[in-house]
Structure formats: C-alpha cells, structure tokens
Computed example of a mutant assay.
Amino acid sequence: MNVFPDFGGLGGIDDLKVAIGAALTIILIVAVLMIIISAIVWAIATSTGNPALAAKARTGVFVALGAAVLAGGCVSWMNWLISVGEQL
C-alpha cells in the first residue's frame, strides 16, 4: 500500500511551499545573526566583569541556537515523515 499525501488536492499548495521556504530562510538568517550578536555581547560582558549581562547573552546564544536547529531540521524531519508514510 503506497500512502502519499495528495499535494495537488489543495489549490495554491505551491504558493504555500514557497512561503514556508521563505519563512524558514528568514528564521535561519535571524537566528544566525542573533547567535553572532549574543556571542559578541557575551564575550564583552564576560571580559568587563558584568555577570548579569553575560548570563542574559549566554541565554540568547542558546535560544538562538535552538531556533536555528529547529528551523534547519524541520525540512528534513518533514521529508522523513513523508518517506515513513510511503512505507506504511
């Protein structure tokens, strides 16, 4: 039994794929920029002896890293789910 979603069953699905791809690209770019900015602030705050700002910047680095990983892995995860659905 070959199970595969019927992407042609909905009108405008190609436009939706383009919009989702663009949104994921924007999310990845913003996440990488936030990693860079937070890492710079973390380094400056640590070198000047400001532990409160260093802790906030460290949190920013980890949150942005998590967002980048989730956005980057979303496409691979969806392709894996579709391939699993074909095997059922």
Score class of each variant (00 low, 15 high):
T46I: 08
T46G: 13
S47A: 13
S47Q: 10
S47P: 03
S47L: 14
S47G: 06
T48R: 15
T48L: 14
G49C: 09
G49A: 08
N50E: 07
P51G: 05
P51C: 07
P51K: 05
P51N: 05
P51M: 05
A52F: 14
A52C: 14
A52W: 15
L53R: 11
A54W: 11
A54L: 11
A55D: 12
K56A: 07
K56G: 08
K56C: 08
K56Y: 03
K56M: 10
A57I: 05
A57E: 04
A57W: 05
R58H: 13
R58E: 06
R58K: 15
R58W: 02
T59C: 02
T59S: 09
G60S: 06
G60K: 03
V61D: 02
V61S: 02
V61C: 03
F62Q: 14
F62Y: 13
A64G: 05
L65F: 09
L65A: 10
L65G: 07
L65K: 00
L65I: 00
L65H: 00
L65V: 03
G66T: 01
G66S: 04
G66M: 00
G66A: 04
G66K: 00
A67I: 09
A67H: 01
A67Q: 03
A67D: 04
A68I: 03
A68F: 03
V69A: 10
V69G: 06
L70Y: 02
L70H: 00
L70R: 00
A71K: 10
A71E: 13
A71S: 15
A71H: 07
A71Y: 12
G72W: 04
G72S: 13
G72Q: 08
G72E: 10
G72D: 08
G72F: 10
G73T: 09
G73H: 07
G73W: 05
C74S: 12
V75P: 03
V75H: 06
V75A: 06
V75G: 06
S76P: 08
S76V: 11
W77F: 15
W77A: 15
